[in-house]
Design a protein around this nucleic acid. Structure first.
Lengths: 121, 121
DNA sequence: CCGTATCCGCAGGGATACTG
DNA sequence: CAGTATCCCTGCGGATACGG
């Protein structure tokens, strides 16, 4: 039995997950990673694709993702400047378990909505 | 190819995941669900097992989890009062993809720490 | 074009005290 | 035992303006 999910689990042993969730559980990280899945993107491309993110948050979130090794930042020394963001192997591998979560959410979203509906009743 | 992760993905189609992440991406929800995996738990049992959660947050988070259909709340009409929280089938099924995420985090946590270390350098 | 600095409002979450 | 009510503080995240 897995040490992180077993019966007499010491919940502090789950810290790695919490560390991950704390970082990518925010409003934007996952959406950005998703955008980068098909290949490198420039800053404003990400802005447009995500749509309602502010420059501030896109910048901050990209920094954090870079810091944690999920994405790379590549500056092309030219004018006008060009910066590409891309998934690292780590970032790409992260999307695998997340894909399962997306699938789960798709499948069970109606059930959740239904539960919320019944809650008030 | 999955509509939620395909190439020309409309990111609004990913809303279900965001809805899930918004709810369980917080600091406590996942830890609570984890605690409930081995069976029903009473309020103060959860308090003790999680350790550093406040009554306030435990209460609030349990309500949300109940509202979304992840857990049930069962009141035993006796004195002193007794309330059991338990995973629903939905909550239990949710832990399956999360297990994959836990496994990923366990495996790649060192790489993330390493990346953070190199970032300042 | 690609950001950062600054300012600010608001919700998340802790501490504490009180109730059924 | 099992919560809720209240207060308060912090940090997320938006808007805007400015720098490389």
């Amino acid at each position: 039995m897995d040490s992180a999910l077993g019966h007499d689990t010491d919940l502090t042993a789950v810290c790695p997950v919490r560390g991950v969730l704390d970082r990518i559980g925010d409003q934007w990280s996952f959406l950005i990673l998703l955008s980068l899945e098909d290949g490198p993107r420039r800053f404003n491309e990400l802005m447009r694709q995500i749509g309602d993110i502010s420059r501030q948050m896109l910048s901050r979130t990209l920094r954090r993702l870079e810091e944690d090794g999920y994405v790379t930042r590549t500056v092309f020394p030219q004018v006008p400047p060009r910066v590409d963001y891309a998934l690292t192997p780590l970032g790409r591998s992260f999307m695998e378990p997340m894909r399962a979560l997306v699938a789960w959410a798709d499948r069970h979203h109606p059930a959740i909505l239904d539960a919320r509906g019944r809650y008030g009743a």
